[in-house]
Simulated assay, not measured.
Amino acid sequence: MSAKSGERLKDEGTQLQVTAAGATAGVISRFVIAPLDVVKIRLQLQTHSLSDPLSVRPLPPNSPIYKGTFPTLLSIFRSEGLTGLWKGNLPAELLYLCYFAIQFTTYRQTTLLLHSTLGESTLPPSLESFISGAVAGATGTTATYPLDLLRTRFAAQGNDRVYSGFLPAIRQIYHQESYKGFFRGLAPALGQIIPFMGTFFTVYETLRPNLSKLELPYSSGGALAGTIASVTAKTGTFPLDLVRKRIQVQGPTRKRYVHKNIPEYTHGTFGTMKEIVKREGVRGLYRGLTVSLVKAAPASAVTIWTYERTLKFYAGLGDRGVKGI
């Protein structure tokens, strides 16, 4: 693949258009996959399972046992109503709005910086995409991490409401845990997002030129490339995502979430991974992987599909605006 063939995502449109298109894609994608995201978080935080002998032990009262994606969806709906499937949607929408805008903008700017400092054809396209994707993912994750933590905590609470609302949650976390409470789990988040985004954009930019030529009935080639890229990257980095979720719900409210027996983890990212393996076996690091992969397909497809068309729309508005002057 030539350097020119991989530049459309990064260089098409102005910076404002790229930012607006990325933000729009993030918001729409988040709303569509919100119920699956809640299911994933509930499964990731579950340390017990009827099918796992290591986890069979007396459970605290009212601790649910989730088994599978659709049974978990049904269980949440029955016990918490339809709104239970969209718990944490406000911080999540803000997260996706800000994250995708920052991600796409940083990806574009990092690539342009590489071109200006090293030259357009100096780096192999796959390496260029990996570097730009990793920088974009790390920047977006760090800037929006408090929203990610809030999303997880809201999704983790059952009928016993730990936080009464978005702003009260911010005040309560700051009062009880100081500003550091908003960044619990940032280390595994960065450890996951750098290889995830690097792999995602590398696979995406590699597949997109050929897949874009395909005429698909319900999807674009770009959306298909995005789906394959997301599934590939997510599978490889999933244990770090699970560790991040477990650390995010640490603190004074740890025993008040829907799972009452979340262990206390005090030994950092790798210490937490070791403890999970010791308590739950290796399979404990992959709780929620199935729904995560199920979620990855529509999320990536909607994100890339919306991004490409929104960017064209904004670019069209800009062209008409220029012509009208």
Rank of each mutant, 00 (worst) to 15 (best):
A3T: 10
K4F: 03
K4L: 10
S5T: 14
G6Y: 00
G6M: 05
E7H: 06
D11N: 14
G13K: 02
Q15E: 14
L16D: 10
T19W: 15
S29E: 15
R30I: 00
L36N: 03
V38I: 12
V39T: 03
R42L: 13
Q44M: 15
H48A: 15
H48T: 15
S49D: 09
S51W: 15
P53D: 08
S55W: 03
R57A: 06
L59T: 06
P61N: 06
N62G: 07
N62R: 09
Y66L: 02
S75L: 04
S75P: 00
E80K: 05
L85Y: 07
W86D: 03
Q103L: 13
T105H: 07
L113P: 07
S116F: 03
T122A: 12
L123D: 04
P125F: 01
S129D: 08
S129G: 03
F130Q: 00
I131G: 05
S132Q: 06
V135R: 00
A138Q: 00
G140S: 07
T141G: 01
L147M: 02
D148I: 06
L149A: 09
R151H: 03
F154G: 02
A156C: 13
G158C: 07
R161H: 13
R161C: 08
Y163R: 13
G165E: 13
P168T: 09
Q172D: 15
H175T: 10
Q176L: 12
E177G: 11
E177Q: 15
G181E: 09
F182R: 11
F182T: 06
F183V: 05
R184I: 04
L186T: 06
A189M: 04
L190K: 07
I193H: 00
I193C: 02
P195C: 01
F201T: 00
Y204C: 00
Y204Q: 02
T206I: 04
P209T: 10
P209F: 13
L211R: 01
S212T: 01
L214D: 05
S219C: 12
G226N: 03
A229W: 00
V231Q: 11
T232C: 12
G236P: 12
G236Q: 07
T237V: 15
L240K: 02
K245G: 10
Q248M: 15
G251M: 11
G251S: 09
Y257C: 08
K260Q: 14
I262F: 05
Y265F: 09
Y265T: 04
T266L: 10
H267S: 14
G271A: 09
M273R: 10
M273G: 13
M273P: 13
E275A: 15
I276M: 14
G281D: 14
G284K: 00
Y286Q: 01
Y286F: 13
R287P: 02
G288H: 04
L289F: 08
L289P: 12
V291C: 11
V291W: 03
V294D: 08
K295Q: 11
P298S: 12
P298A: 09
S300Q: 07
S300H: 12
T303C: 03
W305N: 13
T306Q: 02
T306L: 05
T306Y: 01
E308L: 15
E308M: 12
T310R: 09
F313M: 11
G321E: 14
I325D: 09
